[in-house]
């Protein structure tokens, strides 16, 4: 199975550009051969199991990890070389927040403001009010959801060109999650910021993302527009006439498996010709085509990769 790309960006308008990006920890490749371009104003949702390489990829974009192989450019700067320039242009909300607990909300704001020439007080105050963050409250007295909201305020108040969100919503209650998502959506709409985020909650991904990237074992298995991915990826059910299990060798096959007497073939670009090929390869008289939700698409890409490797 090869990595598939089907998006319309060009090199010139790519705010984020990764080429052959890789990172090794010890002898293990955490991320390998990732090629990805994200144009201005687009949002990419990274999907992957735990340890798939999402956080490592985001950390390399932020300049917190140096790539072992390949190159990366964020807003025209190489994070490994111009780390400060990248950090000035990027808002980052990690999974775990480590804001000084002794600081009050207002102190955290004043502290961060000192490092950003583009800091906008009006934006900051508006978000503090919208997210109901009391400026006089100490960070240690905030709930987990409130700390994440504070991290979001600190990440967007300097008017970043890029927003990197590394599973910030993990462990949040539904209300806090909703308010956080609303904030991100509003930031995208207001300022056309480019967003890369990872999440295990596929509903959130589907709501926020223009494009989806599925990472597994450090490799980018697929990178496509959400609509394209969901309309083009289909699962074909073919009832096998006898016990023989055929092997279907087509470029479009994402995953194939047998369930009882049924052959399930998930294809990345569905069309009548693809259906015909599956039908004839399986020797099946009866075939059905199933639309897939994002969760099923994700699972089939991972299953397909596991089977292939």
């Amino acid at each position: 199975m090869t990595s598939q790309k089907n998006h319309t960006s060009t090199i010139s308008d790519a705010v984020i550009d990764m080429r052959g990006l890789g990172r090794v920890f010890g002898r293990q490749w955490a991320v390998r051969d990732v090629d990805l371009e994200i144009p201005k104003g687009r949002s990419l949702g990274l999907l992957g199991l735990n340890g798939a390489g999402k956080t490592t990829t985001i950390k390399m974009l932020m300049g917190l990890l140096r790539p072992t192989a390949g190159s990366v450019s964020v807003a025209g700067f190489d994070p490994a070389v111009d780390s400060l320039e990248v950090k000035r242009r990027v808002g980052y909300v990690p999974e775990q927040q480590f804001i000084y607990k002794w600081m009050r909300v207002r102190e955290a704001v004043v502290y961060c403001k000192a490092f950003y020439p583009t800091w906008d007080d009006a934006t900051c105050d508006r978000w503090l009010k919208t997210l109901e963050l009391d400026p006089h409250k100490k960070v240690k007295h905030l709930s987990k959801g409130m700390v994440v909201k504070l991290a979001f305020v600190l990440a967007v108040s300097h008017q970043p060109e890029v927003l990197l969100l590394d599973e910030p919503m993990a462990g949040l209650d539904p209300i806090a999650r909703e308010e956080f998502l609303d904030g991100v959506v509003q930031t995208i709409c207001d300022r056309g910021v480019t967003v890369v985020f990872s999440s295990h909650t596929l509903g959130d991904v589907q709501r926020l993302a223009d494009e989806i990237g599925i990472i597994h074992d450090g490799r980018l298995l697929v990178h496509r527009d959400v609509d394209d991915l969901l309309t083009q990826t289909k699962r074909i059910h073919a009832v096998l006439p006898n016990g023989d299990v055929p092997t279907i060798e087509m470029e479009d096959v994402v995953c194939q498996r047998v369930r009882e007497r049924e052959l399930l073939v998930t294809v990345s670009s569905y069309g009548e010709d693809v259906l015909g090929q599956v039908r004839s390869a399986a020797g099946a008289d009866h075939v059905e085509v199933e639309d897939l939700v994002l969760e099923e698409v994700f699972k089939d890409y991972v299953r397909g990769w596991r089977m292939a490797s």
Binding site: L64, K87, F98
Partner: peptide, 14 residues
């Protein structure tokens, strides 16, 4: 020790 260095590292601080 308390990992707050992680907070400093994401800011544009030399």
């Amino acid at each position: 020790g308390d990992k707050t260095l992680g907070f400093c590292r994401i800011l544009p601080v030399d």
